Computed example of a mutant assay.
Amino acid sequence: MTVHLHKGDLPDDLDLGPVVAVDSETLGLSLVRDALCVVQLSAGDGDAHVVQLDRKTYHCPNLKALLTNERVEKIFHFGRFDIAMFQRDLGVTTRPVFCTKIASKLARTYTDRHGLKDVTRELVGIDLSKQQQSSDWGADELSPAQLDYAASDVLHLHELKNKLTDMLVREGRLALAEACFDFLPTRAKLDLAGWDETDIFAHT
């Protein structure tokens, strides 16, 4: 595994292919308070690209172009949060997307464990470390441990997508999952607009 650190943006000549795993790191989990700091990506080739964003400008045209490229599918785990952060701080709507957490909830109905660590352990046989999850992602310099952690969150998403897609097809739920993925940018907009805890589909 090689982790490539990029300051501010992806390189101009980097081609990550038609399916890219994406995740982000923030200063916390509040869509109102906490800043987007890092975006990590992988082409599924065992390498990871970590973009340490300039939080004063969020000037990253290459990253924004990838996130909005309709010919590139972006794989997330709990994409709802990342997509909302990208809408808020980068000003882009990310699509098309595949969310392994939604796929897991629709396919792995035999369990209530749908976190990335649990899904990766079962389907890929790898035990991810979450030790750096709550570290300071706004630091001027990211530590080797932080870079390795950021990379680990995207390195296995391609394999998870393939295995979960097979399960969704087996259970006849792939079309339902795809409809949920298509709705994610709208779900993110609802979160940002204040409907993050309200089920607008509920009768009450």
Rank of each mutant, 00 (worst) to 15 (best):
H114S: 14
L116Q: 12
K117G: 00
K117F: 07
K117Q: 14
D118A: 15
V119W: 06
T120H: 00
T120R: 02
T120A: 09
T120D: 02
T120Q: 10
R121K: 14
R121F: 13
R121V: 07
R121S: 15
E122Q: 08
E122R: 14
E122C: 05
L123I: 02
L123C: 08
L123F: 06
L123M: 11
V124C: 09
V124R: 00
G125H: 00
G125Q: 08
G125C: 07
I126Y: 12
L128E: 03
L128G: 01
S129Q: 03
S129L: 07
K130A: 11
K130T: 11
Q131N: 11
Q131W: 08
Q131D: 14
Q131T: 14
Q131R: 15
Q131F: 05
Q131P: 00
Q132F: 02
Q132Y: 03
Q132V: 03
Q132R: 04
Q133Y: 12
Q133R: 13
Q133I: 05
S134N: 14
D136T: 02
W137N: 00
W137G: 00
W137L: 09
G138W: 12
G138K: 06
G138T: 08
G138H: 08
G138F: 11
G138N: 06
A139N: 03
A139G: 13
D140N: 11
L142D: 07
L142Q: 01
L142A: 07
S143C: 09
S143P: 08
P144F: 04
P144N: 01
P144E: 04
P144L: 04
P144Y: 01
P144M: 08
A145F: 02
Q146R: 01
L147P: 01
L147S: 04
L147V: 02
L147Q: 02
D148Q: 15
Y149A: 04
Y149N: 06
Y149K: 07
Y149Q: 04
Y149L: 01
A150D: 12
A151H: 03
S152I: 01
S152G: 07
S152A: 09
D153A: 09
V154I: 11
V154Q: 03
V154A: 05
V154H: 05
L155G: 06
L155V: 10
L155I: 12
L155M: 06
L157V: 09
H158A: 05
E159D: 15
E159C: 10
